[in-house]
Design a protein around this nucleic acid. Sequence first.
DNA 1: TAGATTGTTAATCGATTAACAATC
DNA 2: TAGATTGTTAATCGATTAACAATC
Lengths: 216, 216
Amino acid sequence: MPATVSEKTIGRLSLYRRLLYELRNAGEENLYSHQLAQMAGVTAAQVRRDLMSIGYSGSPTRGYDVRELGESIGRFLDSPTDQGVALVGVGNLGRAIMAFFAGRRPHLRIVAAFDTDPYKVNRVIQGVRCYSLEQMPQVVESEGIQVGILAVPAVAAQSAADTLVRAGVRGLLNFAPVPLRVPPDVYVEDIDMTMSLEKVAYFARQRASQKELQTW
Amino acid sequence: MPATVSEKTIGRLSLYRRLLYELRNAGEENLYSHQLAQMAGVTAAQVRRDLMSIGYSGSPTRGYDVRELGESIGRFLDSPTDQGVALVGVGNLGRAIMAFFAGRRPHLRIVAAFDTDPYKVNRVIQGVRCYSLEQMPQVVESEGIQVGILAVPAVAAQSAADTLVRAGVRGLLNFAPVPLRVPPDVYVEDIDMTMSLEKVAYFARQRASQKELQTW
DNA sequence: TAGATTGTTAATCGATTAACAATC
DNA sequence: TAGATTGTTAATCGATTAACAATC
């Protein structure tokens, strides 16, 4: 039933919602596409097309209703029922991720963490119960978890992904700097910090040298 | 002089190099485009075009030389001189980022950290000296830093970015869940974990329901 | 040589941008 | 009404994929 919407549009909708939430807190009731566009760093036409794709309509005179639009995006993006998330790897990065998402989205909450370290297993860290890797299939199944976050070292990532997928997980957020092999019915989003930093370093250098050239 | 290469190609080159490094450690001397392609999760034609874009040639019979290719990518991606990186925000996420990059790329190293917390200022955390925000312009300039990482709360991100840019930074890796406004000669790469997780949750749900439909 | 792989050009694809009639 | 904004289609753009002669 939901029309096929591109990955990028989904990402932008998530951003729009966050901006709308701030606007609503600031007491704004209406907004035009170009206002949201400026805040999000995209074009007004882009915003209109994205909103059109989820079937939300504005008015030529009043623009979009901030509250209604936020709720519309929520109905489109969010699951009607709560979605639990599994976190694998409770090292520095894993704990930072826990802290980052704590209390942020009640409907999309980390409900179980997994680690090999016996010292962490069975403890509650950042309000999340920590299990051993062996318990993963059972916990994922009993909690009905569809989403997993991988914050393990590169060597452990593929095996952790395999276990999650076998247990029924259909989406992975992968922080390990290694490409995962998963069945086509599993969605993977990679956050490769090494790659990102190298890109930034490359283009920063390029911009800096362009600046030098301009002074000639 | 370096031909214009797309952002995506730069990212893939960074990944190729990492994979080549592993292959070299495994004792491999040559490889064909389709081998690298499979490891990286892209097509062989993609690999060939990416390598062509940095001017590296293979042989129709022996493929590519693992060592030479790795070095070629390095010469293209890396700065001839060391590039120092500034990290702003030494909270949970900031410390995780420090730990993640510690010792990973000697040429691209976090050389200074900044935080408002007086307890952290002037201490050495994960081997990196921590300064106050007031010292940022001076430290960035004296260290010749071109790259900044923002690991601060959303409300503090724009002001930190402004200060970094004024001090001469030309590339930002932004972990704060907020779009930054920067001059056109500054490159920004966003790592928006909230957006990424919401995307994964959305598509995980979609895949799961597709699976259900198939059983009908 | 025969054959698989390479460098490189042409065709395809998808998303973005531009344009504009419809609307309040 | 007049006018700015909307929904929607057509034109543009860039990157990916397919194809193939050149090569070792």
